[in-house]
Design a protein around this nucleic acid. Structure first.
Length: 219
DNA sequence: GCGACAG
DNA sequence: ATCTTGTCGC
């Protein structure tokens, strides 16, 4: 499977960080009016810097000005299955910078996976473990093997599993359009995450919050 | 056996 | 992720 990219030292760190995660019902996030939802997208520049787009929505639909924050990139390369170590520290640094001028968010959404990951520890889990905040991972491509063969164009949702357990959902946010892949990272239930993502979506393949964060990371 | 692998 | 022209459609 992912043996080709296996990095045992990082596997060990993932196992430790995993113990920080909390999926108990009583600590699961449910959005309330005014809750601050922060969405982050990172782009890597030629000069060793990372340009981070940070979008803020006050639930359900108050959009605050999007921010762009510069952070030095990590020295580790991108390796499939270990993206959290590549992008996670950058995201954390951007959140610290964000916190200088803003209240703490109630939820963080990242561009990548949560537990829909070979060891159930994607970027959203890393951010959840490090911050203690609820997180959602929203990816444009799947990482786990999943048969798109039986996911017809007319179906809106298609669950995917790791071993026997449900770890995420492929969701078409627009009819007939390629799905996005949603999974929880920390202190969230998948169904809550899916409803919230729908709320943040208007007329595009990606939710508006992620589109704004993406745009801010590239200008 | 070969392929495929978030950003 | 990024490299890119033209093209279609609102």
């Amino acid at each position: 499977m992912n043996d080709r990219f296996a990095i045992p030292e990082l596997d060990a760190q993932q196992e430790l960080l995993k113990q920080q995660l909390d999926f108990s019902t009583e600590n699961s996030f449910v959005p309330k009016p005014g809750d601050r939802i922060v969405t982050i997208d990172v782009r890597y520049l030629e000069n060793g810097m990372a340009q981070v787009g940070v979008d803020t929505v006050l639930f359900p639909d108050t959009v605050l000005p999007v921010e762009t924050i510069m952070i030095p990139a990590t020295d580790l390369p991108y390796v499939p299955g270990y993206m959290s170590f590549y992008e996670g520290p950058v995201v954390l640094a951007a959140l610290e910078e964000y916190a200088v001028r803003n209240p703490s968010p109630q939820l963080i959404i990242v561009d990548g996976h949560g537990i829909a990951h070979p060891r159930q520890f994607g970027l959203a889990c890393y951010i959840g473990a490090k911050t203690g905040l609820p997180t959602i991972g929203l990816a444009k491509k799947n990482l786990l093997p999943f048969s798109k063969a039986n996911f017809t164009k007319s179906e809106q949702r298609h669950p995917f599993y790791l071993n026997e357990s449900l770890v995420g959902m492929a969701v078409r946010l627009q009819p007939e359009i390629n799905p996005v892949f949603v999974s929880v990272g920390n202190r969230m239930e998948l169904e809550t995450a899916l409803e919230l993502i729908q709320t943040l979506t208007t007329n595009f393949r990606l939710p508006d919050n992620l589109r704004r964060a993406d745009a801010a990371s590239r200008k």
